[in-house]
């Protein structure tokens, strides 16, 4: 799976979680950019990502994420392994 594929699938996840078909994510997108991104939606994102990409994310991995770009990197890395 390429990085772009990850980004595309992740964007779909975002749109579902935030119930907003117009969301576009870039590497720089972070919690400040999306209004409803709070603890709950954060969890929903994690869960949705785990389900979509069939992986488990550890606390250390999650805590390090500052923006979508790092999220994509993480998924890409783990999916590749």
């Amino acid at each position: 799976m390429s990085r772009d594929e990850v980004r595309e699938r992740l964007e779909k996840v975002f749109r579902e979680v935030f119930d907003d078909e117009t969301i576009v994510i870039t590497d720089d997108t972070s919690a400040e950019d999306i209004d409803a991104w709070d603890s709950l939606t954060h969890v929903e994102l994690i869960v949705a990502v785990e389900e979509e990409f069939e992986m488990k994310l550890s606390a250390r991995e999650i805590v390090r994420l500052k923006n979508v770009g790092e999220f994509i990197n993480l998924i890409h890395e783990k999916a590749g392994a």
């Binding site: 994310l57 606390a59 805590v63």
Partner: peptide, 16 residues
């Protein structure tokens, strides 16, 4: 609390 307690707890096996 969100960054240092909530998120770590949420991702533990126990919570799962």
């Amino acid at each position: 609390f969100r960054d240092h307690l909530f998120v770590p707890l949420m991702a533990t096996e126990f919570n799962r």
